[in-house]
């Protein structure tokens, strides 16, 4: 009996956006009298940080500081339509909608500034720190807040924009399967290292190291969070989780967390990653979706590592100690 180590890899792609399209997201942006901007959505933040990254995208497009943007979601009386948060679609779809809305709102803001400065709108620029100015004439500068206030009280105008993004619906040819099932594809390659105890069949995952290509990272810490959390979930799917421990028999299904197995903080592998940015043609600032795919490549990487360590190829998930011990038994002469 021994502890055997092995390494396995897997390489995957993953589609961004709702399969086949036809899934609109909309956004409204308006300025308040104090010069902050409100982004109104009905999209949902699942914890991945949608509110935060949408605020960043809006600030970038508007040319104002991040803390000048408030993201207000999700209320169907106020927020325009959104298909929902799933299919790694939210940052891509909502981000594009917010860019469109922010471009329109920014133009309304520049129009007021141009009128006030008696300049052409092409000459007006935002410095990204809360000021509007006539290009090359720093003396003719005014805080966004002042222009926003002026728009409402002096000119009687709204500073607002509407945005929508929808990938047109693609039909599937029922005979050939010809279709357009994604907006873009993100990629990952994961290498896992495991140690298998041949006495107990238990697997210790020593490390999960990955490269991800995600188009562009709006918020690298949040991307890192998806990768770390996804690596854990992938490991959990590979080795622990199921609601049918004797599948396909439905018996002994877990009722609570004491019966539903997942790895805890004492089972954590070393998790490392590198993130490549190769902007997509159609995502906001080149974004691709990262939310879902991070649990995918760790699973086969771990299963391949177990084979490398033991010579036992397991083709059914989860890879329980029982399956490994039966596999080891079958290999004995």
């Amino acid at each position: 009996m021994a502890k055997l180590r092995g390494t396995g890899m897997a390489a995957v792609n993953y589609p961004t956006g709702m399969n086949l399209g036809g899934d609109p997201s909309q956004a409204l942006v308006h300025a308040t009298t104090s010069g902050s901007f409100v982004v109104t959505l009905s999209a949902t933040d699942l914890g991945q940080g949608l509110r935060t990254v949408i605020g960043q995208i809006a600030a970038e497009t508007l040319g104002v500081a991040y803390d000048q943007v408030v993201v207000d979601t999700a209320d169907t009386d106020t927020g325009p339509h959104d298909m929902g948060t799933f299919a790694s679609r939210a940052t891509h779809r909502v981000g594009n909608a917010v860019i469109a809305a922010a471009v329109e709102a920014r133009k309304a803001l520049l129009d007021v500034a141009a009128e006030e400065f008696e300049a052409s709108v092409d000459e007006i620029e935002l410095d990204g720190h809360g000021n509007l100015m006539v290009r090359g004439v720093p003396a003719r500068s005014m805080p966004v807040a002042e222009v926003a206030s002026m728009a409402q009280f002096k000119y009687g105008r709204t500073i607002a924009g509407r945005g929508s993004f929808m990938k047109p619906r693609s039909e599937v040819d029922p005979e050939t399967g010809a279709m357009d099932p994604d907006s873009t594809e993100a990629h990952a390659c994961t290498v896992a290292e495991v140690e298998v105890d041949t006495e107990t069949g238990e697997v210790t995952v020593l490390s999960i190291r990955s490269a991800y290509e995600v188009g562009r990272q709006v918020n690298p810490a949040l991307v890192q969070g998806q990768i770390t959390g996804g690596a854990w979930m992938g490991m959990s799917h590979a080795l622990y989780e199921t609601t049918a421990p004797y599948y396909p028999a439905p018996d002994h299904s877990p009722r609570d967390f004491s019966e539903y197995l997942m790895p805890g903080p004492l089972e954590l592998p070393e998790i490392d990653c590198v993130v490549l940015e190769m902007p997509s043609s159609n995502g906001p600032y080149g974004v691709k979706g990262i939310g879902e795919m991070t649990a995918n490549s760790p699973i086969p990487a771990i299963v391949n590592a177990i084979y490398h360590a033991t010579g036992v190829r397991i083709d059914s998930l989860p890879v329980t100690p029982e399956k490994i011990l039966r596999g080891l038994d079958a290999r004995r002469p």
């Binding site: 969070g225 770390t228 805890g264 903080p265 954590l268």
Partner: peptide
């Protein structure tokens, strides 16, 4: 990390993979 892991053993997180919490 061992003591942290022991202490956290009864508290579940489904999102982060625990590493950021540790």
């Amino acid at each position: 990390d061992e003591a942290i892991g022991q202490a956290l053993a009864g508290n579940l997180c489904r999102c982060t993979g625990y590493r950021p919490i540790v």
